[in-house]
Nucleic acid binder design. Sequence first.
DNA 1: CCTTTCCTTTTACATATGTTAAAAAATCAG
DNA 2: CTGATTTTTTAACATATGTAAAAGGAAAGG
Lengths: 192, 192
Amino acid sequence: MRQVLDSFFSYLENIQNLTPSSIDRLARLSSVVRLNKNEILQQIGKTCRTIYFVNHGAARIFYYKDGLEITEYFAFEKDLIIRAESLFTNQPSQKGIICMEDTEFISIPSEPLFSLFDSHHDIERLFRKLIQNAYVETVRRIELIQFNTAEERYQALLANHPEVLQKVPLKFIASYLGITQVSLSRIRGSLS
Amino acid sequence: MRQVLDSFFSYLENIQNLTPSSIDRLARLSSVVRLNKNEILQQIGKTCRTIYFVNHGAARIFYYKDGLEITEYFAFEKDLIIRAESLFTNQPSQKGIICMEDTEFISIPSEPLFSLFDSHHDIERLFRKLIQNAYVETVRRIELIQFNTAEERYQALLANHPEVLQKVPLKFIASYLGITQVSLSRIRGSLS
DNA sequence: CCTTTCCTTTTACATATGTTAAAAAATCAG
DNA sequence: CTGATTTTTTAACATATGTAAAAGGAAAGG
C-alpha cells in the first residue's frame, strides 16, 4: 500500500512540491480503496467527508432527477473526485460515486486533512491548486452547456476528451452532456 | 481609499482571520477602481492578471458566441469577480467584465498576491476558501443548467436570488439562464 | 454455447425552445 | 416634456430535443 501511495504522491508533487514531512503526514492520512465495477464508493444522502483520487480505473458522480439517473462528472486516472457541494458546506449530498470499472482510489478524510493545512502550508497550497483547477474545469463546462447545441457539446467532448468516448457507455455520456440517449444516438448517426 | 479598503477587509476577515501584517500587505497591494454604468473593467482578449471584488454596485462577465452576447456571471456587493479560466491558466480570456451600474471595485494584481501567499499563509487560506466557495457555486450552476427546463431555471433564480431579478435587465438574465429573451418573456407571461 | 440482461439505435410523435419580425412599454437624453 | 433609444412582449413559424416503444446488437453469466 505504501508503494501505491508513493507513486501517487510523486504525481501530486508535479502539482506542488512537498517537504518529506508533509509527504509523510499525508501518507499516514491516506488509504487505498479498491472496488469492483458498479460498486458504490459513496452513497447518496450522506455528508461527504472524504477526498478521493482515482489512481487506476474510472468512476463517476451521479444523482437522480425525476427518477432518472444523471451523470455529473467522470473521473479517470489521477483525477480528483469530490462532491464539493457537500464536502465544503457540510450539507448532505444528493449525489453518489460509483465505479465504471474495477477501480483503485486514494482516500483522504477531509477533517484531518484540513487540520494538516495549519501546520503544513505546502499541503494547503497543493489542495488550493487542485481546487483551483477543478474550478476552472467547471467554468469551462458551464460555457459548454450554457449555449451550445447538443451536437456542439458532443463534438467538443470528442475533441477534448476522446478517451471518454472509448471508456464510457453512451447512456452515461448522454446525461453528462445534458441530453437523452436517443438524442445522442441521433447526433452520432447524423455525423457518419 | 484606505477607509474603503478597511471596511472591505473587515468583510474578508469574516471568511478568514488575518494577522495585522497580512492586512497591511494586502492593503498595500489593493486599489479601488470606480467606473460608471456600462464602462468596461476588463476587455475581451487579454490575459487576466487581476482579482476583483465588487465593493458597491453590480457587474457582469460576458462573452460572444456567434456574434451574440452571453452573460456568464453576475457580481454584486462583496462578490468576487474573476475570469478564472484565464487568471489560473495564463491564457487570454475570451470574456470581458462590464458594469451594470456605477460600481466600485477592489482590485488586487494576481502576481504579487500569489507571491504574498509564500510569506503569509493566512492570505493563501483566505483565497483558498474564496475559490472553494466559487467552485461550489459553479457546481450548483451546472446542476441547474444540465437537466432543468428553462422554466425551472428561472424559478430557481427567482427562489435563490430574487434580488437579481430586481437589479438586472431581463435580456442579461436570459442568456445567463442559457435561453433567449423571447423564451424568458414567454415563461414570465405563463407564470402570471 | 445458449439465455438473459443490458446497451444502442430507430421510429413516430409531442413539445419546448429558437428565430425573425413587429408592436408595446420603458428608459434616456436633449 | 418630447423624441429617440433601449428593453420587453407578442406573434407566427421552424427546429431541436424529448418521450415512448420496439428492435437490433453486445456483453455477461450459467
